[in-house]
Design a binder for these strands. Structure first.
Lengths: 136, 136
DNA sequence: TAAATTGTATTAAGACAATAATACAATTGT
DNA sequence: ACAATTGTATTATTGTCTTAATACAATTTA
């Protein structure tokens, strides 16, 4: 069962949260190419949201080449998978890093504080949590 | 000059982004109690957004007791503004870092990639701090 | 005192998100 | 063949966010 966490607190549109989290699962291999994903109505029921909202997310994912949908048959992860090239992936990461730097500065932490924290977390990440579900 | 980073990509309402980042600056002491903050119209011009949007953020912050606004006089950080202690600030930063690590992993970047990127951005960050405003 | 500054308030419009209720099309399973 | 499943599409409604354009009130400044 696909685990998607919907947050209604941060103002991010629900369909966008679904798209982003599905992308991550595909990128990390948690959703393999060819693998079938839950029907729109099923996922909607699971997430307690309207089927139209899930449909919108699936439609977006298909338009990006990540999903392949067929009426009656269902929706699967495309064989080609995520089509992000290096520059695009770097762009995403860069934006995340910029946001982190601003926020850390606002919280009065230095860059070295951040880096130390990253190394700490990374140690834990690789020694105990690698391969497990870390989306919570 | 207050540094606020507005993202128009992730769907988070602009007024909410302002509220969150101001809160962090107050929590860390980067915005001190009694300190005056930019007039609504000035911040709006700086962020290239509508004054009403800034007004909404300020209104929200005042309703939470973080700001104190007076017509004609301006808006200041409340004397007994909510301040997070070190553990709480670290907790916020830790969550951000964890999110970044997960996302970077999904995007197939290593920790060293992240750190290198941080050092790059940090260099730009401080050089632009001295000179003029380089807003992405 | 008069002008400028600053916060407050209102109304309107457009765009978007989400829900709701259907209907239809293609495929699958019996 | 038939029913169930599944994706697709449409229309309507409600609510929120943002911009826009004003107007007004309180304070500061010249």
């Amino acid at each position: 069962m696909i685990k998607i966490h919907i947050s209604t607190k941060d103002g991010v549109p629900i369909f966008q949260q679904i798209v982003t989290q599905i992308k991550h699962m595909v990128a990390s291999g948690r959703l393999a190419p060819g693998e079938i994903v839950p029907p729109i109505r099923v996922l909607a029921e699971q997430l307690l949201i309207n089927p139209n909202t899930v449909a919108r997310a699936y439609k977006e994912l298909e338009s990006e080449g990540i999903f392949i949908s067929r009426q009656g048959s269902g929706t699967r992860v495309a064989e080609k998978g995520s089509t992000l090239d290096y520059a695009e992936r770097l762009q995403v990461l860069t934006e995340r890093v910029e946001s982190l730097l601003v926020e850390a500065d606002q919280l009065d932490f230095t860059v070295e504080d951040i880096i130390e924290l990253i190394r700490q977390k990374n140690k834990l990440f690789y020694t105990s949590e690698r391969g497990k579900n870390i989306n919570d």
